[in-house]
Nucleic acid binder design. Structure first.
Lengths: 252, 252
DNA sequence: GCAAAAGTGTTCGTACTACACCCATGA
DNA sequence: TCATGGGTGTAGTACGAACACTTTTGC
């Protein structure tokens, strides 16, 4: 899509948005996935300006905030059934307004927005995200790629805070449950924890710790196909997992 | 103030508010204090309806959200120099609108508000709060009194969530530093932790733990006047305290 | 058979728990 | 002097860190 078309698209959307959405309030979800031993986030590349953004959106005038976020996740990223939690509010003046500087001030998107940040944990094996009409693409970006890409507004700061929150919550929220496929191996789980915490963990100690929590079910299968010893497959024991989380899992 | 006067006051404030504040966004601070071994929160009793409310407010059109909260704290409760942190967003539809049901829908205060919750830690010995023109009184309410009082809107839920956040953050934020006077005794500090966590702690173990953190300075004074052995006075070592908090203090 | 990854066992030190004991103070 | 709360010491235990050892797999 060329620049002229994308500008017209933004103008059309402004008219519509003024009808249905609350002014000044937006929600920005940071959707985490885990693949190939790396953490990744789901970002949209906008037609306008070709910058990357969080797949955020607005809140309808007669819609609960939480419902709005669920709707935004589904419509902008094709994501449903995720763990979702608010982690911060971004309310500096001019954090987003300047982005649409070549538009008239009456543009809905150009007003001041206070944005509520949510982090989501998404088991990406189930389905792949879709781009909506506003975005050229919507795709997974690995954390290690982030420094290289062009992120709009304060969205880099929002992602940083989301990641920091993820680290702090790792002992209290069902991180593994929502980021791994139903069946997984202990080495995979360890890689996930290492990716979130950003540091290596000792294998033996990790195994014993995680097993002592009593939240895993060892399956009668193994992951074949690797070059070495076949690791055992596990799945989470839903009931035990939730019970353990009430106390907090542990410190890692 | 009678009901007619308080209604007129609300109407005058509506006209003014439409000029200066962003619509649909409010901030509600839960200000904690500690006195007589009990936690307390600072609440305003409104002229209108005689209900208790958090001393919240609105965000100016050209003001950072964080600055707005500082301004609100000072103007509504006479509180400055507090530890302050966002802990949640309250965005259900009709969470506050019904409160002003006997007013016209055009009233600023009656629109839908998404409210950002902040918790504040206030060393209450320094100065006593003042009521602003909207409130009959603004005063400390002990947590144990809360079940008896008439709280407006969803403010009980907001306070609950603030308290829960305080519990979760007790190992990672300078709770004691901001809720105790400059000089304090170990029994006082222990009572504070017990009040927040809602359970008794073992004295000997608490002393050793807190001392091993290396964040306390033992003073060459004691608190005289009690009926028994005079306890030693301590104060926090600012530098060491902040350093320790980076890692998180401990699990309690 | 060998390299590499998966899984288990062992040792050591630290930190938490529970509880006992001594100390200081005012009545 | 005695009751009470403040302060310190100690034995037992649990758990994490570090590391060694065994097992299993594909090449």
């Amino acid at each position: 899509m060329n620049e002229k078309d994308s500008k017209e698209q933004i103008l059309r959307r402004s008219v519509e948005a003024k009808e249905i959405y609350l002014p000044h309030i937006s929600a920005d979800p940071v959707i985490f996935g885990f693949h190939q031993n790396e953490l990744k986030v789901l970002l949209a590349r906008m037609n306008y300006r070709k910058q990357w953004m969080l797949p955020g959106g607005y809140v309808k005038k007669d819609e609960d905030l939480d419902d709005a976020v669920l709707r935004i996740l589904e419509s902008r990223a094709g994501v449903t059934n995720v763990f979702l939690e608010e982690f911060g509010v971004f309310g500096k003046k001019n954090r987003s307004e300047y982005y649409f500087e070549d538009f008239d001030d009456s543009l809905f998107q150009k007003q001041r927005f206070i944005s509520v940040g949510y982090y989501a944990l998404y088991n990406s094996s189930e389905l792949s995200p879709v781009a909506d009409e506003m975005s050229e693409t919507c795709e997974w970006i690995y954390l290690k790629q982030l420094p290289e890409i062009n992120l709009a507004m304060d969205h880099r700061e929002i992602i940083e805070k989301a990641l920091q929150t993820l680290r702090e919550k790792i002992s209290h929220k069902p991180i593994g449950y929502n980021l791994l496929p139903e069946k997984f191996t202990l080495p995979e789980l360890q890689k996930l924890y290492e990716a979130i915490l950003g540091k290596p963990l000792n294998r033996g100690n990790f195994y014993r710790k995680i097993k002592n929590l009593g939240i895993l079910k060892k399956l009668q299968e193994q992951r074949r196909g690797g070059a070495h010893k076949a690791p055992d497959l596990y799945s989470f024991d839903d009931h035990q997992y939730r019970k353990a989380l009430e106390n907090g899992l542990r410190n890692w």
